[in-house]
Design a protein around this nucleic acid. Sequence first.
DNA 1: TTAGATAGCGCG
DNA 2: AAAGCGCGCTATCTAA
Length: 354
Amino acid sequence: MVLYDELKINPVKQKKTAGGARTTREEELAKLAPLHPIINDILGYRELQKLLSTYIEKMPAQIGEDGRLHAEFLQTGTTTGRMGCQNPNLQNIPIKSEYGRRIRTAFSAPNGRVLAALDYSQIELRIAAGLSGDKKLVQIFKSGGDVHAAVAAQVFNVPPELVDHEMRRRAKVINFGILYGMGVNALRANLGASVTRDEAATYLSEYFKNFSGLARFIEHTKAEAARLGYTETLFGRRRYFAGFKSSIQGLRAQAERMAVNAPMQGTQSDIIKLAMVEADAVIEKRGWRERAELVLQIHDELVYELDEKIAEEAARAIRDVMESVAPRDLLSGVPILAEASMGKDWGTMKKLPR
DNA sequence: TTAGATAGCGCG
DNA sequence: AAAGCGCGCTATCTAA
C-alpha cells in the first residue's frame, strides 16, 4: 500500500472492459510500469506484434501480378461521408512510431516516378471556425500562424510570447476534443494525470468563453439535430440520427456527440472529394493523364504517383486545386490550406516549399 | 471447423 | 473507459 501511495496509483479503481474484465489496454497498463519492468516489455511486444501481424506478414501476400497493392475504396462506407478502405486497408498504414514509419518506406514509386502526398492542414478546425463564424477563431486562421499556440494564449489568458510547450499541448488536446463533442471527463483523461478534473472543467469553460461563437454553433447544431433528426454539411448533405428519440440518456448524449462532429467531418469529406474531381480535371487539361495518378485518399490527404519530370509542377497544381475548391466565402473567409511533400517512398518525404 | 463477439490498436 | 468522432484488421474466445 505504501508503494501504491508513493506511486500515486489507486489499486482499487481499475478500468474494466465492456465484459467486466480488467482492461489491459495500453493506456491503463502504462500506469503499472513503475511496479514491474515486465510492463514495458509487454507494451513493446504489443507494438511490434501489431505491426508484424497486421502489416509485415500480411501485405506481401496481397501484392498483385503488377507488383502493386490494390485496395478497395468504399464510397458509401461511412456515416459521415468519408471513404472507407479495405482488403487491405491502406488508410491505416503506420506512421506515428519509429518502426511504423519504417513500414511506410516499403511503399515506393516505380522508376521515373515519385510519390507526392498532399494534405490539408487542420482542416476540420478551420471548418469549425468557418461554419460557426466564431470571430476569434476566424481571425486566428486569417492571420496565419500557429493555431494551437494562439488558442492557448486565449484559454490561459497570456500574451502569445508567454505560451509555453505545455500550454500549447493542452490547447491542442482541447482543439481536437471540440471536434468530437468531448466533455470534461474525456478532456481530463486526454490531458494526462497531472491535470485535475476541476482544471479540465476550467479549461473548457475558458475555451467557450473566448470562442463563444463556436460554443453557440455547437449548441445550435445539437438543438437542430434533436429537432429535425439530422445535421447537414456545408453543402447540404444530411446525416440522420435515431438516438435523439431514445429514452436512454446515454444514447441521446451519444447522438449529440455524433451530431456535433458530423457537420465538420462531413464537410471535410465533401471538400476533399471536390478536390479529387477537380484535380483529375486539371490533370486531364494539362496533358498529365499518363504521368499523374491518384493512388490513395486518406481523409485529409491525397497521394499521387507523379512522373519525375512534372512532379513539382503537378504537386503545386494539385495543392492549388485542394485549396481553391473550398468555398472560402461560405466559410467566413477562413483559408483552407494544403501542404505538399514528395519522395521516392512514402516514409521519407520532403516538404515542397511554396 | 466455423461464425460471431470481444478486446485491442493501426490510421485520420 | 469512452460522457471523444470516423474507420478496418488481428488475435482470441465462445457458441454452434
